[in-house]
Design a protein around this nucleic acid. Sequence first.
DNA 1: GTGATCTATATCGGGCCAGTATAGATTGTG
DNA 2: CACAATCTATACTGGCCCGATATAGATCAC
Lengths: 174, 174
Amino acid sequence: MDVRTICLGILTRADATGYEIKKRVEEHGFRHFVEASFGSIYPALDKLSRDGLVSVREEIQEKRPDRKVYSITRAGRSAFIDSLMTPLPEDRHRSPFAFAMLFSDLLPEQRIAQMYDAYAAQTEDAFRQLQQAKPQSAGGHFAIGLGRAAYGAILDYLRVHRAELETQTAEAAE
Amino acid sequence: MDVRTICLGILTRADATGYEIKKRVEEHGFRHFVEASFGSIYPALDKLSRDGLVSVREEIQEKRPDRKVYSITRAGRSAFIDSLMTPLPEDRHRSPFAFAMLFSDLLPEQRIAQMYDAYAAQTEDAFRQLQQAKPQSAGGHFAIGLGRAAYGAILDYLRVHRAELETQTAEAAE
DNA sequence: GTGATCTATATCGGGCCAGTATAGATTGTG
DNA sequence: CACAATCTATACTGGCCCGATATAGATCAC
């Protein structure tokens, strides 16, 4: 899912500037599924504009940079739908935490506990965000539920393992 | 978790060529948590070599490209551990499928069902792979369990939602 | 026997991220 | 009230990384 496609998707819902697209990508409905930075959004909008998939109107502002408001064109809408009609790229779950755990034997126990707590906190945050998210459509409802299911399961697993870890520590301390 | 760090991690377990590192990254113990392509592994090994974090010995072969076998150095091992002692990057879960679902209203019902089935099949594969994986260490056991918990929850969610979807279709067909 | 897969290294274009620059407006805090 | 932080808004750069491609003999399956 490249940044151009993400931009097109967001623009099917409403016109937006590059800045607003970035904000929207960070909202609950999107942030757990896609990401895009300024460094890729602005060039993407440039390219889309050159290809006629979006149009721009410049709103001149006195004491700020001019707002460039992008709208999706008919061609853009159909290119977006086309891209959803061809096979989707597979999901990617990259976890530096799980990778680090594979090398737990090389690290002090204290550091493991630290990583563990940081990871649990992050996951709880993500879960809570999805709990509060208000879906805008049937698809949004589904996607949020999916995320919630995954994060919830991870949290449960962490809780169970945490208990095991404490037991082991307690035994070792005897 | 950059490719250099991934290479170092793998080399803490055994010496390897670039090719072997790629294979190892694709094994059950790693593939659900990290990824790295040839296009990044070879330059990474180059850089590590120049920085003295790995050493190379060239095994000349008659009718094949020479094998370059990399070993981690003392400096490399400590650089790897250092990188695990500093705060880890957050997990990333990118899901083109969930993103596409957010736009289900723009797509034909048939296509939704298709994406749905493809996604379920993929997830089942991943789950099965983790079921069969045999952990090599306590950390490996933990990481595999974590992955299994997440994929399992997603599969459950998909099954439940599938039933709903069929109910809706059936109602619509009346 | 012949086509597919495996071993093995390497490069290139293009996509993308993180950081940085710029700059005035608004909001918050002590 | 002063000063800091955050917000709006665009844009570039260095560097990382992926996917595709090139090369080439070996081995395996049918």
